[in-house]
Amino acid sequence: MNTGVISVRYARALLKSAIDTKSEELVYRDMTLLAKNYIDVPQLRQTIDNPMLEAEKKQMLLVTACGGEEASSLTKAFISLVLKEGRESMIQFMANSYVTLYRKQKNVIRGKLTTAVQLSPETEQRMKSMVENRTNGRVEFESEVNPDIIGGFIMEYDTYRMDASVKTRLNTILNTLKK
Results as ranks from 00 to 15, higher is better:
V166D: 04
Y38R: 01
E140M: 06
K167F: 10
K16S: 14
D40Y: 02
T159N: 11
L170E: 15
V145W: 07
K104N: 09
I79Q: 01
C66K: 03
L34M: 04
E24V: 08
M94R: 00
K84R: 08
D148Y: 03
R45K: 14
L174N: 12
K36Y: 14
E54D: 11
K128E: 12
E56M: 13
T75K: 02
S80N: 08
G151Q: 00
L26F: 13
G68R: 11
Y160P: 04
L177G: 01
T3L: 10
P147G: 07
N50W: 07
A13Y: 02
E132S: 10
D163E: 06
K36F: 01
M127F: 02
Q92D: 10
S143M: 13
M31Q: 13
L15D: 05
L81Q: 00
K22G: 07
V41S: 15
A164S: 13
E24S: 15
K22C: 03
N96T: 08
N50H: 06
P147I: 09
F141L: 14
T159K: 10
Q59Y: 15
E69L: 09
E85K: 14
R9L: 15
G111S: 06
S143C: 11
G152M: 14
M155S: 06
S72H: 10
V8K: 05
P51A: 05
R126A: 06
E70N: 13
V5W: 15
V145H: 04
E122L: 05
I150M: 07
D158Q: 12
L53V: 14
D148V: 05
A11K: 03
V99M: 00
S129P: 05
V82D: 04
F141M: 08
Q46P: 07
I48M: 03
D158T: 01
R29M: 01
S23L: 11
D158F: 03
N171Q: 09
S97H: 04
A55M: 11
G111W: 00
S120K: 12
S73G: 13
T123G: 01
A55R: 12
I6Q: 00
L44Y: 01
S80G: 07
T159C: 12
R110K: 13
R45N: 11
L177V: 12
E132R: 00
K104T: 09
N96P: 07
S23G: 09
T64N: 05
E132C: 10
R9Q: 15
R169P: 01
V5C: 15
T3P: 02
L15Y: 08
D20G: 03
L34E: 02
D20L: 15
N175V: 02
D158R: 05
K128L: 09
E132Q: 09
N175L: 14
A77I: 01
